[in-house]
Amino acid sequence: MTADYKKLSDEELVFRYAHRNEPAAVNCLFDRYGHLVFGVCAKYLRNTEAAKDATQQVFIKLLEDLRRFEIQHFKSWLYQVSKNHCLMQLRKPIPVVNNEIASTENVESYSELHHKIEEERLYDKLDAAIAELNTEQKTCVDMFYLQKMTYAEISAKTGYSIMQVKSAIQNGRRNLKIKMEAIREVKS
Rank of each mutant, 00 (worst) to 15 (best):
M1R: 10
D4H: 07
Y5E: 04
K7L: 07
K7F: 01
L8R: 08
L8N: 03
S9I: 08
R16Q: 13
H19T: 10
E22R: 01
A24S: 08
A25I: 03
G34W: 07
H35S: 13
V40P: 00
C41Y: 00
K43F: 12
K43L: 00
K43H: 09
Y44P: 06
R46Q: 12
R46M: 05
T48Y: 06
E49V: 08
A50D: 13
K52C: 12
A54Q: 05
I60W: 08
H73A: 08
F74Q: 02
K75D: 04
K75L: 00
S82H: 12
N84C: 05
C86H: 14
M88I: 01
R91E: 05
P93I: 00
I94Y: 02
P95F: 01
V97W: 06
N99I: 09
I101D: 06
I101W: 05
N106M: 15
V107N: 13
S111N: 09
L113M: 11
K116N: 01
E118R: 04
E119P: 00
E119H: 09
E120D: 07
E120S: 01
E120R: 09
Y123K: 06
D124Q: 11
L126S: 04
L126C: 05
D127Q: 07
A129T: 11
A129W: 05
E132W: 00
T135E: 15
E136P: 01
E136H: 14
T139V: 14
C140L: 03
D142K: 11
M149I: 12
T150S: 15
A152V: 04
E153S: 10
I154G: 10
S155I: 07
S155P: 02
A156T: 14
S161F: 11
V165R: 09
I169D: 07
N171L: 15
N171M: 14
L176K: 06
K177G: 03
K179S: 11
M180K: 09
E181F: 10
A182Y: 14
E185W: 01
